[in-house]
Amino acid sequence: MRKYTPKDNVQKKSYYTDRFWVAPRVPTLEVEAGSHFESVVDTISNAVTIKEAGVQIGQLRIVINATDNFKALQILRDECGYAMCSELSAVDYLAQDGEFEVFYQMLNLNEAKRVRIVCRIKEGEAVESIVPLFKSANFAEREMFDMFGIKANNHPFMKRILMPDDWEGHPLLKTYPLQGDEFASWYEVDKIFGKEYRDVVGPENRDPASVERYDSQRFSRVGYEVPFGAELEEGKEEESPIEYSKTFMVDYTTGTTTLKKRK
């Protein structure tokens, strides 16, 4: 029977699994009373509901509802001094929960503190664009759309950014294979010659190290040197016996050396 491979996550997986092994967790600390992060949590919780808040590796992580993202970030910027949105992107949890996790990495330059706002959306849902608050989200949200297909509502220019405009599929989804899908493998052929040319061109060989054994125009490897462009047929190549180095046999009793070829 063929080995079962899950279709919802085609990324590389560890071939070795220990079912008794429990992965340790990065400690999530409570927000300390009286700290800067506590005031942030308090300010945000006045306006939007906070599902979860904790400090992970020195940075506050706040989980909110996806519909509140604009409001929460506005409060963070205006009332808590988080003037920069240094990064935003998503994590694909479609296989596990049917959801994306969208995170916004915020920076307060006066306090040198960082907060990560995290929200979850279902597949096909969109988030509200935060470009009116932070212009850095302009490119970042486009990249999120390009890579995951998550749209940002009211974005000024929601278009693919890294992949070509006419690309199909979103490369960072877990369902998207590393080597690209069927569309990706024919993209250049389709674009330059048209789809009907697929039969003429044939599937692209993406292995740069591959060598055709009998193609004497491209470094044939039949075991001996052949002139460029020579006709080679499969199974008709010369026998190339293995050559051994010449060995001097020394007869220590007489002190003479004889040249013998090994069989």
């Binding site: 992965a23 340790p24 967790r25 990065v26 999530t28 992970q56 590796i57 940075q59 992580r61 240094s86 990064e87 992107s89 995170f103 990495q105 920076l107 960082r114 990560r116």
Partner: peptide, 20 residues
Amino acid sequence: PPVGEVYAPTESPKGELGFY
């Protein structure tokens, strides 16, 4: 590595370079 997430900012010659 343990389950969790991290964002570590560094000052690269070009600006803030960090891996989430």
